[in-house]
């Protein structure tokens, strides 16, 4: 089997990000540390588990992003992916999900992947739609929020459980090729092993530079960004930690939560 895992680089925590003076986008600062989107760690792990179970399986990892995203791709190789593809884009703050999906589709279209795995959501933009877009662009079936996946290579089918609301699971059977979006908690992502780290160090990944006319035009524009207002009913308790604790205890007494 051939599996493509989509991995996105995201800021480690959003409180190191800043809004540009014009208020048009959220950008990294010198303090921003980047890492792999956590949902994609689960997707990559699921691909690696399939590789362990099904002989002859190859796992490729793809990322769309600027130069720095290469470190996330390298991490995927260190974790055990066999091959990396970096679709290199300029350092623009907002690449819309359709543009990202189109770029991944242009790589995947002719390469006969049996499965394409993405995360349910990127932690920064929180679109939750790139995997579904990719499936639609490639005209493949798509199963979202996957919490269990059993591949039956002989039948070219895969049995899936997807998570829906209210603590329910939906069972789905799909033919391959297919796109799956992987939900957190499906597995326990592994750490890079020394042997993979050493191999990844020597291993080059493919870089496809995309800029200017090669970039698919965005279907939507991000026109402004701001910190949301704190609701007027809320009170931020001030003082030293000790004073805050005392005030909180007073409030809990006032509301009769403490005996």
């Amino acid at each position: 089997m051939k599996i493509l895992a989509c991995v996105k680089q995201v800021p480690d925590s959003s409180d190191t990000m800043a809004i540009t003076p014009e208020g048009s986008r959220v950008v990294p600062t010198a303090a921003t540390v980047f890492r792999m989107n956590r949902y994609d760690e689960f997707a990559l792990e699921e691909a690696l588990l399939m590789k362990e179970r099904i002989p002859g399986t190859e796992v490729h990892a793809v990322t769309v992003g600027p130069e720095r995203a290469g470190s996330t791709l390298r991490r995927a190789l260190e974790t055990g992916a066999d091959h990396g593809i970096h679709i290199l884009t300029p350092e623009v703050a907002y690449l819309d999900p359709f543009a990202v999906a189109s770029l991944i589709a242009s790589w995947a279209r002719t390469r006969d992947y049996d499965l394409i795995l993405a995360g349910v959501m990127a932690e920064d933009d929180m679109e939750g739609q790139t995997g579904q877009l990719l499936a639609a662009i490639l005209d493949l079936p798509c199963v979202t929020s996957v919490m269990e996946a059993r591949v039956r290579p002989a039948d070219n089918e895969i049995d899936l459980e997807r998570e829906i609301e209210g603590g329910l699971r939906m069972s789905v059977l799909t033919r391959m090729p297919a796109v799956l979006t992987i939900q957190s908690g499906i597995n326990t992502p592994r750490y890079p092993s020394l042997s993979h780290v050493l191999r990844a160090r020597r291993q080059a990944f493919e870089v496809m530079a995309m800029d200017g006319p090669a970039l698919p035009g965005p279907l939507s524009r991000c026109t402004g960004v701001r910190l949301p207002e704190i609701s007027s009913q809320g009170v931020i308790i001030a003082g030293t930690p000790r004073e805050k604790a005392r005030e909180l205890v007073r409030i809990l007494h006032e509301h009769a939560f403490l005996a």
Binding site: P11, S14, D15, M17, I19, V26, E123, D124, D125, M126, P218, L219, S220, R221, C222, T223, G224, V225, R226, L227, P228
Partner: peptide
Amino acid sequence: TTLTRAVCAGRYCADFTPST
């Protein structure tokens, strides 16, 4: 036609304008 949604764990709101 501007739609607002949360990004970065809800820390920011962002406005999006479709062009289709």
